[in-house]
Each structure stands twice: as C-alpha cells, then as structure tokens.
Design a protein around this nucleic acid. Structure first.
Length: 418
RNA sequence: GGACAGGUGGCCGAGCGGUUGAAGGCGCCGGUCUCGAAAACCGGUAUGCCCGUAAGGGUAUCGAGGGUUCGAAUCCCUCCCUGUCCGCCA
C-alpha cells in the first residue's frame, strides 16, 4: 500500500519513482488518489468539529434529560446537528471506499538503486555449452514425467511425475527444507493452501490480479499462487515484538497459477505450468535491516543451487520488470543447456513496508514505543520444475543416464537416474 | 449440514442507553526497598486520523456494515468470524 503521507509530503518524488515502472496510467491514478485524499481530509476536519459539538452537547444535556426534561427546541437543534453529521459521514464513507479501492491498485515504489535495465550481478559455476537433449526428452526416456496423462487429468500445464521423478521432487523438497531450517535458521511452516480474499489482498495479488488465481466457488477462497501469501499473512493485523525480529519462515507448498495471458509462452515441458512445487522463504524485519536482509535472503536461495551443482546467475531486475508489490528484486536463473536458456527458479524481493501496510503488520521496537510497519521479504528457495529441468539437462551423461550431485543423492538414495 | 453460545485494549475479563477509551487482573516499563534479585508498594502503559516544531489538543475505534435515539460498547437488523454439541468423515 502506498504511503499517503509520503505522497502528500513529496508528490514529485512518488511520481518519479512510480514513473520508472513504465505504466503511464499510474500518473492518473496518483492524481485521483491525491484528490480523494484532499477531500477526505477536508471532510474529516469538518466532521471532527461537528462531533466535538455534539459530544459537548450530549454531556451538557445528559443531566437535564435524566433529571426531567430536555427542552423540545434543544432536542430539535441536536437532531439537526445529528442529521448534518450523518450527511457528512455518508459522504466521507463513499470517498474512503473509493480511495481505498484506488490505493490498492498503486504498486510499490522501486528503490533508487534499482536500474532501468536488467543487470547481471554475478554468475556462479561454468555454464555447459548449449546442447544435449531438452529435459522433456530426457524425462520421457527415463519414464519420470508424463505430460499427456497430466493433460488428460487436468489440462495442459499439470505435469505428472512418476517413479524416480516423484521421488526426485520429494527429495528436493526435503533437501531444501533441511538446509533452510538447520543451516539458515528458518521456522518450517505448513500453511493452508486455500486462503481468504483478505490474505491475497494483503500480499498484493488482489484486487489487480484476480484473473491469475484459481478461485473456489461458493466459498470465495483462493488456491495459493505461492506460499508467500499464507506465510506473510501469518502476522496480518499483528504487532510483533521488535526484539524477535528478524524472523524467518520456510514453507513447502504446491503453487497454483492460471497463467492467464501467457498461453503459448514456454509451453514445452516443465517451463511454465499451472501447478508446481516450491519451497519459499519469508522474512520479517525492521526497516533499517531490510537491505542487508535482502542480500542474506538471496544468499540462502543461492545456496540451494550450489548444493545442486547448477551453474546460475543472479540478475537485478529493472524497475519496469518486477512484480507489483516489490521494491527491488533479484532473480536467480539456472543454466539449462538442453533448452539453451537461463531459467528463473527464484525471485528474491524486498517489499519494504508495502505489504506490511496492506496487511497491517507492525512491530513495537521496544516496550512503550510506537508501533511501526515491518519490512517483508521473500525468495523462492527454490521452485522445483525448472530446477528439475536444469538438473536433467546439466547432469545428463553420454550414456543417457543422469547423475545426481552428492547432496541430492543422499536424499534420493541413488547417485544416478537411468 | 442441524442446534446453541459468543466476538471489548498485548492477553484475560467487567460493563448491557448518559463525563466509559472503557473497572479489575495479568503482562510490560519506570520508581521505592535491596549488596543484587525476588516479593511488596507507588506510578505509567491502546490504535488510526487531523491540527501543532513541541508540549498538547480534537476526533474516531468495544468483529464489520446499517438503523433507532438529543445521546450507543450497551437497543434493533444484516453480514463475517470463533467456540460447543449433534450428524457426516480422512
């Protein structure tokens, strides 16, 4: 949620920051928000004054009315005052409703250090030369992936993992959860996979991106597109103890995405699917800590790829290229020689206080001090399908088998598939 | 799905038309006492918005919205949520 006080204090700064997102309609949205905010303040000023009058009057009248008789003309005057208040209240309510609705459509402000062009920050490992089989061919040969039957069950984009493939997925999940809980200090969470509208609004998926989500009828619940939603909302409407921050949670969940509007893109194999598994990292911290937390978090996600011996690069996304609620995002991309592409397997973002405002997540720095909004951050740690694709393509052998890195072999129970 | 009960501050809990933002307790903070601590005692301790450099002031908020009233945490209506029992069930 955009900070109305900041918008009021530094309108030019907010406009300049939002302009970097490259959506010209945001200027008009800000105009509307500013006008509504001004109206709201004028109205609340008038209302505060009238309410003060009414409160004074009520106190003065109380004794009179209780004892015996409140003069008719006094009662009439009070009633008239009450009517004026009711009219203004109705007007104010209408403006607030509109203002809230508009505000929810304003994305987060990119941080100043975010570039205008995507930038490769660092690369780890040596990417294999482009070539070899794409993962779907390897997987088909190994009999660990069945796309046609997935399509029969649910439609395209719902892969079925079989045998060693299913075991591989389960092993990857266990490896990641163990790494993040034992070595990086996260608390493991198993959240609900269906969430309320409020939760989706808190993290920024709603109201703007409702078409991207699967929604249940008649309960109006949403299938989580990422564990970020339930885990961040764990602390919705709470005031956290400042001494307990930073706080990190890790959750494995399936993720459900309609991918509306992306038909035809990356449709082969595992690159873009409607349901996939992901281990997600979520952190809550004080505002001053969030830049360092963002780097730490990104490092936690990177460690997964190092353990899997997958060459990857970290890219800093451009201001016009990252998600609605984010203020700064690093993508982790693994090299997939078979398809000859860098594949995004993690997005590590800081949301500054944007989600915290929407979801009303605050902390009290110390006892007796005023609550302040926390900063939220999250990163995939990491998403499975593309990681599996990269694993198969990177570690495929001339004889058609696929070797597994030691860290993973321990979990799978073999160091070779096929 | 059926039948009840209930939603009040960080937590528990009173209040059921008139200085109630809200008793009391717990927790927390400060102080007295102590070599130190505990106990005891004293004091403080909600959040949003607006005005103000500040001190402070105004206002709103007792699940949400609407209504009755000169006046609503208290009465009425609708919705949401939680709990208990019954039914069903991994």
């Amino acid at each position: 949620m955009i900070d109305l006080k900041l918008l009021r204090a530094s309108p030019a700064q907010v406009r300049a920051a939002l302009a970097r997102r490259g959506d010209p309609s945001l200027t008009r949205l800000l105009d509307e928000i500013e006008a509504l905010d001004m109206k709201r303040r004028t109205l609340t000023g008038q209302l505060d004054q009238l309410n003060a009058e009414r409160n004074d009057a009520a106190r003065a009248d109380a004794a009179l009315a209780k004892a015996g008789k409140l003069p008719d003309e006094t009662a009439a005057a009070r009633r008239k005052l009450g009517e004026r208040i009711a009219v203004l209240e109705a007007e104010l309510r209408q403006i607030e409703t509109t203002l809230d609705a508009k505000t929810l459509f304003a994305p987060n402000l990119p941080l100043p250090e975010v570039p205008d062009e995507v930038t490769v920050v660092r690369t780890w490992g040596t990417p294999a030369p482009k070539g070899g089989q794409p993962h779907w061919e390897i997987a088909e040969r190994l009999g660990i992936l069945d796309l046609p039957r997935g399509a029969k069950l649910s439609g395209s984009g719902f892969p079925v993992l079989l045998g060693a493939g299913a075991r591989l997925a389960r092993s990857l999940i266990a490896l990641m959860l163990d790494l993040h809980t034992r070595e990086h200090g996260y608390v493991e969470v198993q959240p609900p996979l269906l969430v309320r509208r409020e939760s989706m609004t808190g993290t920024g998926q709603l109201p703007k991106f409702e078409d991207d989500a699967y929604r249940t009828e008649p309960d109006d619940l949403f299938l989580v597109p990422t564990a970020e939603v339930p885990v961040t909302n764990l602390h919705r409407d709470e005031i956290l103890d400042g001494a307990a921050l930073p706080k990190g949670y890790v959750a494995y969940t399936p993720c459900f995405r309609r991918e509306a509007g992306s038909a035809g893109k990356d449709t082969r194999g595992l690159l873009r699917v409607h349901q996939f598994d992901k281990v997600e990292l979520v952190r809550f911290c004080r505002a001053a800590e969030s830049p360092a937390e963002h780097e730490t978090l990104t490092g936690h996600a990177e460690e997964v790829l190092r353990r899997l011996e997958l060459p990857y690069r970290v890219v800093l996304l451009a201001a016009n290229d990252f998600s609605f609620a984010s203020a700064k995002t690093y993508d982790l991309e693994v090299w997939a020689p078979g398809v000859g592409q860098w594949l995004e397997v993690s997005s590590a973002s800081t949301f500054t206080d944007y989600q915290a405002r929407r979801a009303n997540i605050r902390c009290r720095p110390r006892a007796g001090e005023k609550p302040e909004f926390v900063h939220t951050l999250n990163a995939s740690g990491v998403a499975l399908p593309r990681t599996i694709a990269a694993l198969l393509e990177t570690h495929q052998q001339p004889d058609g088998s696929v070797t597994l890195p030691p860290a993973l072999a321990t979990y799978v129970g073999t160091d070779r598939l096929g």
